[in-house]
Simulated assay, not measured.
Amino acid sequence: MKRLFQTVAKTMLMLLVIMSLLPLPTSYAQQAGEPIIIGEKIKIHSKILNEDREIWIYRPDGYKEPHIKYPVLYLLDGDGHFHHTTGIIRFLARQNRMPEMMVVAILNTQRTRDLTPAIQLDTTRAFPTSGGAPNFLRFLADELVPQIDQSYPTSNYRMLVGHSFGGLFALHALVNRPEVFNSYIAISPSLWWDAQKPVVEAEHFLKNTKELKGDFYMTLGNEGGRMLGGVWKLTAALEESAPKDFHWYFNRMPKETHGSVPHRSTYDGLETIFLDWQAPNLYEMVVKNGIEAINEHYKKLSKRYGYQIVASEGTINVLGYNFLNRDKYDIALALFKMNTENYPKSANTFDSMGDAYDRMGNDKLAYESYKRAYDIGKQNADPQLNTYQNNMQRLEKKLK
């Protein structure tokens, strides 16, 4: 019996080995599917740092549209925070709680060197590689940002996000090159550094800076001691001396550890900084005050965030059809025209305007709008090109 069992076991083992060498059935192999890609990586050579740096880039859903420029979030410790940060941005933007943003994530080579200022006061702790923050800031401001602006469709709005030493570096960037970034999320920043000298420098900067626009959002997990002391000191300085157009926020997160605090801080920070972003009910706004109320809303946003902001193409498109389906043709047409002015390189905006003219019985202007949509779509290899062509040909027949 024992010999029989051994023979059966050997036979089964041989069958398993043979099966593992056989090609997978087609139906099973197809289950592997296509990869889901959330970004791309590039390398740039820094003359300032004298080294190559790897950068990960996230481009938002609407990036394929050639007429949109995006604000950019520069992310420190990029390899550690890229995935959850891009997910948060994608989710909040889809809920219209913030703009779509690109993410430029900087991977580390020598983290302590890059993210810390030189030690001048506190000689009790040794950090032999520290002190490279000024050079790293020059790399960001004078090499990385210009290359990103040259290579991608960016607006002039930039955010810097950093955790721990990265949060310390965010404060360093604000104090030393405030023109580079518009907003900052400093997550559990290591403000104990060098006997809190960076905080003292920030106090001096705030007291002597009369005009400063932007946002500074700071958090702290369930940390006490020197971590808490530095944060409280900076909070007091901001309370006392922050210029009126500089919006700052401090959020204590006692349920989060130093390691877990980045995710919640990034979500809450983005939602807080872009609190004004979400528009009120646009349909009711237009009914009460006309479409000019929409322009006024986005003018206020532009002033608040320091770059030109207009309503998204999709938002106005949906609103226009909302009025069109209620036979409010004049309002719908005005909204579609607004979209063509804000997004003149979008075929869809002209196609929608053609729909309005078509419903109004103005065949000539409907044809001209559809033709414009077709011409733009052909240049941009628009996936809806056949729709634009069919609409154009349908109106062409009516005119004949």
Rank of each mutant, 00 (worst) to 15 (best):
A170M: 09
M19R: 10
N391E: 05
L324G: 07
K64C: 01
T124L: 03
F205I: 13
W56H: 08
E296R: 03
Y305H: 07
L234V: 15
G80P: 03
Y74I: 01
G290A: 04
D268T: 02
Q389L: 13
G78E: 02
P25Q: 08
N182P: 08
T154K: 01
Q30F: 09
P178W: 13
A366H: 14
L319K: 08
T124V: 08
G166S: 10
A93R: 07
V103K: 02
F216K: 08
E223T: 07
Y307C: 09
R359I: 13
F136N: 05
E201V: 10
E256R: 04
R90K: 06
E239Y: 07
G39Y: 10
I68T: 04
Q393R: 11
F165N: 09
K41P: 12
P178V: 13
T124A: 00
R177K: 14
T387Y: 12
P117D: 08
G62I: 01
Y283F: 11
L21A: 11
P254L: 03
Q393A: 10
Y152M: 06
A347K: 15
V286I: 14
V318G: 00
P254D: 14
Y305S: 03
I331Q: 11
N222T: 10
P23G: 07
P262Q: 11
L395I: 11
H263L: 14
L174A: 07
L144S: 09
T154A: 06
A381I: 09
T257F: 12
L15G: 06
I42T: 11
D149C: 02
L49E: 05
H258E: 07
E239I: 09
Y321G: 04
R59T: 09
F274W: 14
Y298G: 03
E240W: 04
I48E: 04
S352E: 13
T86W: 00
A133H: 05
Y305E: 07
E34I: 03
D61G: 03
L107K: 00
L115W: 06
Q30V: 12
S164C: 09
V287R: 08
A381Y: 11
L107F: 03
E341R: 14
K64H: 11
T26Y: 04
N322L: 11
M12W: 02
N391G: 10
G166Y: 06
Y298C: 06
A32F: 12
S27P: 04
G354V: 15
Y307D: 05
I294E: 01
D215P: 04
T219V: 00
N251I: 00
D77S: 04
N317W: 07
R90F: 01
L144F: 11
E203Q: 14
M98R: 01
S130L: 07
T123S: 00
Y152A: 01
A293V: 08
G62S: 10
G221S: 07
L160A: 08
P71Y: 03
N325V: 02
Y307T: 13
D114R: 01
S369M: 14
Y388Q: 00
G229P: 12
R111E: 13
L365Y: 15
K299T: 05
E65I: 00
L121K: 09
K41E: 15
L212K: 05
D79W: 00
V286W: 09
S27Q: 08
M14P: 00
L282S: 06
Y367L: 15
V103D: 07
Q147N: 09
K378L: 15
I106D: 00
F205A: 10
A381G: 06
S188I: 13
R304M: 10
D194A: 02
K255C: 02
Y374Q: 14
S369P: 15
F5I: 13
D375K: 05
